[in-house]
Design a protein around this nucleic acid. Structure first.
Length: 221
DNA sequence: CACCAGGCCCTAT
DNA sequence: ATAGGGCATGGT
């Protein structure tokens, strides 16, 4: 299993991927919650609702605005699904950010480890959501692992790790610690998977027969 | 009609 | 410790 080589192959196939997770740091924090087990297209609709609502309320940042909206949140984020529980999660996350006056700058001063622990202590923020926020909003060097990542390793190498952090460390120990590379690599895995590995395997033993394993897509692995 | 999507929490074994 | 169910919309 050559995860550095996989990165280079994906780069060759899809080209460079700058700024893969769209939006400002504030938007990334919100959308990281909204995208939990949810199609990105639905997240975009919900984000549009929030942004247009908050633009009409001048002189508040998006984070301040969403924090104030509270009981209006479920209807606004409805298209993203799980809207009741996600509203609670957004409020919990923003309540945590309030102690830093919603300042990306201030929060970024904390160490990666401390910040990760604090995010994980917020109810509704699990490892993938925390790491997405760390990597894309706060630009901390943490590799993001998602269902696509696990599926791809299973299909390419027939490899599975015990838990989330084992996957994360496998990537972090295989490539140089670089925020831009981590951001791009994760994005490449998602884009590649959407394009070529888009359905779950029918059974455990047939994983290697899926299209994303075919030489056509990944010749040198 | 069924299944899936850039998870997480709670509960019952 | 860990599998299973609930959360919900919109696309295929």
């Amino acid at each position: 299993m050559d995860l550095k080589g996989l990165y280079e192959e994906l780069l060759k196939i899809h080209g460079k991927l700058e700024k893969w997770w769209p939006g400002s740091s504030e938007e990334i924090i919100i959308s990281a919650v909204l995208t939990q087990n949810t199609n990105w297209k639905n997240v975009e609709r919900a984000m549009e609702n929030l942004k247009s609502k908050c633009e009409s309320l001048e002189n508040w940042t998006l984070l301040e605005c969403v924090h104030m909206l509270r009981e209006d949140l479920p209807s606004l984020i409805k298209p993203a699904g799980f809207y009741n529980i996600k509203s609670q999660r957004l409020i919990a996350l923003l309540s945590w950010m309030k102690q830093y006056e919603f300042s990306i700058e201030k929060i970024s001063e904390k160490s990666t480890y401390d910040l990760r622990e604090e995010l994980l202590s917020v109810k509704g923020i699990g490892k993938e959501t925390a790491d997405s926020i760390l990597l894309y909003a706060f630009e901390k060097p943490v590799f993001v692992v998602d269902a696509y990542t696990k599926r791809l390793l299973k299909r390419l190498y027939n490899t599975e790790f015990k838990d989330y952090d084992d996957y994360r460390l496998a990537f972090e120990n295989s490539i140089e610690q670089d925020v831009r590379i981590y951001q791009e690599y994760h994005g490449l895995i998602v884009e590649h998977s959407k394009k070529y590995c888009n359905s779950k395997p029918k059974c455990n033993s047939c994983g290697l027969n899926n299209s994303c394993f075919q030489a056509k897509y990944l010749q040198n692995l």
